[in-house]
Structure formats: structure tokens, C-alpha cells
């Protein structure tokens, strides 16, 4: 388990929205760029790391009750995405690390829970 504030430090990430949620506890993670895969496999509240930065990522998070999104590879979302996330109460952080490295850093720092159906 990691607190979101720790994740931000580990990934050297920027908080784009949801600064007030840094005490959230994260037990499992998921890395994917295809949203239907997220909807097929993710089972519980996770941090979703993705290189996709359109409004549909926020929508997918909303449907799946995912509270935290991490945009990887230095991708910068449009204002519309940030606004939608604010409206839905979803926290967004962004890191320069690529997806694989990002997942590896989280895993090696203690997020080992399977966020997916067995």
C-alpha cells in the first residue's frame, strides 16, 4: 500500500487536479492504453496508469470507480479533461516516466495488489 502523496514523490509526478486527496491509500494498480481492457479486467479501486489523455479516460474511471489517474510519458491533457476530472472527483497526476517504468516503480515500492480479476 502507498499513500498517493508517496506515489507522487516516487514518480516525480505533478498533481494536475485533486491536491486535497493526497491521503488516499492505493493498494493496486493497472497499466493500459485501451479502455475496454480496463473495463474487462479491473476489479477494484486502483491507480490507472495510462498514456491516453482524452475525456474517455476520465469517463472510464468514473464508470469503474477509479479515483486516481496517472498520465505517463509526459502526456499533457487538455483543460477539458482536467475539468471533467474535477467534476467527477477524480485525481490526476502526470509523470515523465514511460508506462513500463512507472508500473515498475510502483510495484517495487509496494503496490503489488492485483487490480484485476483472477
Amino acid at each position: 500500500m502507498l499513500k498517493l502523496s508517496e506515489i507522487v514523490k516516487i514518480l516525480d509526478a505533478q498533481v494536475l487536479t485533486g491536491e486535497e486527496n493526497m491521503d488516499l491509500e492505493i493498494y493496486s494498480g493497472c497499466g493500459a492504453d485501451l479502455m475496454s481492457d480496463v473495463m474487462a479486467f479491473v476489479k477494484e479501486s486502483v491507480i490507472l496508469c495510462t498514456g491516453l489523455v482524452n475525456p474517455q479516460v476520465v469517463r472510464t474511471a468514473e464508470m469503474m470507480d477509479i479515483k486516481v489517474l496517472c498520465f505517463v510519458r509526459g502526456k499533457v491533457p487538455g483543460d477539458q479533461v482536467i475539468e471533467l476530472a474535477k467534476e467527477k472527483g477524480i485525481t490526476i497526476i502526470a509523470t515523465q516516466h514511460p508506462l513500463f517504468i512507472c508500473c515498475g516503480m510502483l510495484y517495487s515500492n509496494g503496490i503489488k495488489g492485483r487490480g484485476v480479476w483472477n
Binding site: L34, M35, D37, A40, L52, Q56, T60
Partner: peptide, 27 residues
């Protein structure tokens, strides 16, 4: 069939076209 998709590249760039839509609905 999971994975089967006729989505265009544009749709894939939007994060869809994984071929999981109908299988997910059934599931």
C-alpha cells in the same frame, strides 16, 4: 469474440477498439 474489432485507427487512438466491447457487455 474477445479481441475481434473493426474499429478504425482513429478510434484506437481514442483508446477503444480493443475488441472487448460486446464481450464486456455480456460479462
Amino acid at each position: 469474440t474477445p479481441g475481434w474489432s473493426t474499429a478504425t485507427n482513429l478510434v484506437r487512438e481514442m483508446g477503444f477498439g480493443a475488441g472487448m466491447g460486446l464481450p464486456n457487455m455480456k460479462r
